[in-house]
Design a protein around this nucleic acid. Structure first.
Length: 563
RNA sequence: CGCGGGGUAGAGCAGUCCGGUAGCUUGCCAGGCUCAUAACCUGGAGGUCGUGAGGUUCAAAUCCCACCCCCGCAACCA
């Protein structure tokens, strides 16, 4: 049976993640992982913090910390927040781990042996006052084309022209503002992507019509322009030292060892239980593995070109991406979420305001799949109030209240099945099939629309059968309706579990049934007869609370939502 | 002329590949119901489908051309 490897783009450790990061990859990956586990598939869901590179060094210096302690601090904060959102990683590791170092070296040596690594001397900006080489975007100056005085070394934001740092007039360090800037020649190692181009092209071509358009087209675009050799080392201290003579003072570029981190982190996972886990089962000559990757659109080139090239260049058979889910961006009320400006809603704040499931539901239902999407508290409140409170929460509440009032805390007997029930069965059989198709295709918004239709069907059923009237005229009939409705609640708890695990658990407690079992719905004519009459159920407070207009206004002010 | 994605009721989206009465959710209005969290169910109004008195066609949101706007990318931020 196929094993399901799921990876979510590794979040950069520097700073704290916001809602955009959550929906950009981690949350859809989690929903998919939970969905597959529920279907009984063998799943390994891997993620972790990406830790090397200039921003970590600079961030640590800013906080007056040792870079390793700094990374550990932020790694732990990431873990805490993802736990708060119930992300079900099998392992959440770190790219700075020993295991990843081992993996990085192994892959590097193989590439080197195959003649795919070449040495080049490049001119790099060095800032004596910062005591470091500066990446292009850490150099600022006046644009030679338009005169904009805050142009960055890689590109002028004003006239959008691509620049080289040496083009800048009056260059200065973004970090210290120092104008004491030198250009120093420095040796680096380059991965020879052009040698792998033909092979990659052939491979990408097989993904046409299978991967989402955005993933395929981005990959094609890079190939069309022709691949260029790519530097995989940097003049930094924080990173894996390059194991090659003459490069002792350099480290691997973060984008070289970060994707290898998927493998390194899998080894971290395996090392915790070596008797039962083996990383190679998932990554090396593992023909029975289907690998699904989740990431923001900015990550696509690395996951379609440089990382696959890195793996192929070793000459070994590594697990490649089978399906790539690229997401667009979630914006904040017309603007953007920003880590540096701390604009938007960050994950720790989000959890202080509302339960994780509120966010999970809204984000998945509004996932930026085909285009960038905006978050606003007003939209958020409207969706939560309608879908969760009114449609789902109220349905559960009215069914429970009616049951307890007429039959006590037990599932009533099921009498004769009428047309109302068979119609309900038919509708649900149909919609659930569509729902599963959309989930299998990782089309989350569409799946959520199906789910909503399924939830509405419950209220519709009650409107048609009017159990409150039947309770006065024909108690047997009322019992049959509530029996069916209670079974609907069970069905709902199962269906929403991948999206709202905590809510599903609460529903299961009310129904006094097992939580998170392996489950695939059978035909409704059987599925809606699973809870049998006489089964004890519990009473419950409403599952959700409405977000009132005053609260929305308060949140808008607090988070400085514009527009 | 760098590349890609997007522009469809007030808001959020589907439909575009493969042309055939423009659809869904929310919001608004009306009715029904009264078990339930002022909730639920039904019906209605609301759109020159970015622009072009463009092209092809019996027929264009859909195909072709030109232009405008938004977003992302452009290989040393990650």
């Amino acid at each position: 049976m196929t094993k399901q490897l799921i990876t979510s783009a590794l979040p950069y450790v520097n700073g704290l993640p916001h809602l955009g990061h959550l929906i950009g990859c981690h949350l859809p990956a989690d929903v998919y992982a939970r969905y597959l586990r529920q279907k009984g598939e063998e799943v390994l869901f891997i993620d972790g913090t990406d830790e090397h590179g200039t921003p970590s060094e600079v961030g640590a210096a800013k906080e007056g910390m040792d870079v390793e302690a700094y990374c550990k601090k932020y790694h732990d904060l990431h873990v805490k927040m993802y736990e708060g959102f119930n992300l079900s990683f099998d392992y959440f590791g770190r790219t700075s781990s020993e295991q990843n170092k081992e993996m990085t070296y192994r892959i590097f040596h193989a590439l080197d042996k195959n003649g795919l690594i070449e040495e080049r001397t490049t001119n790099q900006v060095y800032s004596p006052d910062d005591d470091r080489y500066l990446p292009d975007s850490y150099v600022m100056g006046t644009c030679p084309h338009c005169g904009y005085d805050k142009a960055k070394g890689d590109q002028c934001e004003n006239c959008t022209k691509v620049l080289d740092p040496v083009d800048l007039i009056n260059p200065r360090s973004v970090l210290s503002g120092s104008t004491n800037i030198e250009i120093r020649p420095t040796k680096h190692l380059f991965l020879q992507l052009p040698k792998l181009e033909a092979e990659l092209e052939k491979w990408i071509e097989t993904k046409k019509g299978i991967w989402p358009d955005i993933a395929y087209t981005v990959a094609k675009k890079w190939l069309k322009e022709g691949l260029k050799e790519r530097g995989i080392t940097r003049d930094l201290k924080w990173g894996f030292a390059v194991p090659k003579e003459g490069f002792e003072n350099k480290v691997f570029y973060v984008w070289f060892d970060a994707p290898i981190g998927y493998i390194g982190i899998t080894k971290q996972w395996a090392d915790e239980d070596p008797a039962n886990r083996n990383w190679e089962d998932w990554w090396l000559n593992a023909s029975d593995v289907r690998h699904t990757e989740f990431m923001g659109k900015d990550n696509i080139p690395y996951h379609t070109i440089s990382f696959p090239a890195t793996l192929r260049g070793t000459g070994e058979t590594w697990t490649e991406v089978s399906f790539l889910k690229g997401m667009n961006y979630l914006n904040f009320a017309g603007g953007k979420f920003s880590k540096s400006a701390h604009r938007g809603v960050f994950l720790d704040q989000a959890l202080e305001e509302f339960p994780a499931d509120y966010w999970r539901y809204w984000l998945i239902a509004n996932a930026p799949e085909s285009d960038d999407t905006s978050f606003s508290f007003e939209q958020f409140a409207a969706t939560i109030n309608k879908d969760l409170n009114d449609v789902l929460g109220n349905f559960i509440n009215r069914v429970l209240k009616m049951t307890v009032a007429n039959f006590g805390e037990v599932v009533p007997a099921c009498g004769e099945i009428t047309e109302a029930e068979t119609e309900l069965y038919a509708l649900l059989d149909d919609t659930i099939k569509t729902y599963y198709n959309h989930m299998d295709g990782l089309e989350f918004r569409k799946a959520m629309a199906d789910l909503r239709e399924i939830l509405v069907a419950g209220n519709n059923y009650l409107a048609k059968t009017e159990p409150w009237k039947a309770a006065k005229a024909d108690l047997n009939r009322a019992g049959t309706i509530l029996y069916t409705a209670l079974n609907l609640i069970r069905l709902y708890a199962r269906l929403i579990a991948p999206i709202m695990p905590a809510t599903a658990e609460r529903m299961n407690k009310v129904l006094n049934i097992e939580t998170n079992p392996v489950w695939v719905p059978s035909k409704m004519a059987e599925e809606l007869k699973t809870l049998t009459s006489g089964h004890h159920i519990n009473q419950s407070e409403p599952l959700f609370q409405k977000i009132l207009p005053e609260r929305v206004e308060e949140l808008r002010q607090k988070y400085k939502e514009t527009e």
